[in-house]
Design a protein around this nucleic acid. Structure first.
Lengths: 148, 148
DNA sequence: TTTGTTGCAAAACGTTTGCAGCCTC
DNA sequence: GAGGCTGCAAACGTTTTGCAACAAA
């Protein structure tokens, strides 16, 4: 994957993708990317949309369109824990982390593990170029372990 | 996690969960579990529902209800690649595998990796009792790598 | 000038819910 | 009996779509 250490390089990655695929460099697109860069952790399309209204007017449809585009570039990950709405999370400017998901109550807990990260990232594949990954470990949190 | 080597032990796990949580042992529940045991790989609620109509009549609502219940027991995993509908996959009677997901076209490829499996399964957590996991590695398949 | 993108509103769709009757327990 | 579960159909809420106006190339 390309360098994404600075916001400028993230923007460059997105721009390059847009140009290469005959998409237009609209103000909405960059405004959305800038907002995402400010959000740590998970967010929904609706929340991003509402957040943005304060200083940049975009339609919810455009938010959805562009979350999709950013997901395709690998700059964004889409989670769908349990049900709707989908949750998004940027893959840049963040520590690689994994998710513990309680199968009963849906509670999510994040953790980091260098060894796990390195083991996963060290893999090579034929005919597949990896950019990032998500690991969900399912089981039971303390409150729910009694159900089984 | 409990033994799930035979279908009888899977059924026992489910039954135990039902009893422990004051749920009823209805014929629909066991019919659904039996059908799931026959499906290799991913399936949707709709497909399971249609499959079942040939020899057991259940409503779609009950299918949803019970997929939810089985997900809570950890016997079933719910995937939500891209968008709707959700795809389910049993966690018993299957080799542990991982998913390569193309961020552009959504194509899924499964692979197995003993080292990866063992590394992930070796982890212990405070206040969390793991039962199974899913690893999605995102990137680009051969047909789509040109977009970036 | 061409054509991709936008905002808006309506539509689509999977999933959930309310309810009356049924059947576990 | 009590109350959880079922089927049915209607409702819900997120996401997608159609379309006319706009603006990037």
């Amino acid at each position: 994957m390309k360098d994404t250490n600075t916001f400028e390089s993230v923007k460059a990655t997105f721009t390059e993708y847009l140009v290469k695929n005959q998409h237009r460099k609209t103000p909405e697109r960059f405004a959305i990317l800038e907002h995402i860069a400010e959000i740590d952790g998970h967010f929904t399309a609706e929340v991003l949309y509402k957040n943005m209204q304060t200083n940049f007017r975009v339609s919810l449809a455009s938010v959805y369109n562009n979350l999709d585009l950013l997901t395709k570039t690998g700059l964004l990950t889409r989670h769908q824990f349990g049900s709707h709405p989908a949750e998004y999370e940027r893959t840049f400017h963040t520590n690689v982390h994994h998710h513990l998901v309680c199968s009963n109550c849906g509670k999510i807990k994040e953790f980091t593990d260098k060894n796990l990260k390195e083991t996963i990232e060290s893999k090579n594949f034929n005919n597949f170029l990896p950019t990032h990954f998500t690991l969900y470990i399912y089981g039971y949190c303390n409150k729910c372990k009694h159900i089984m």
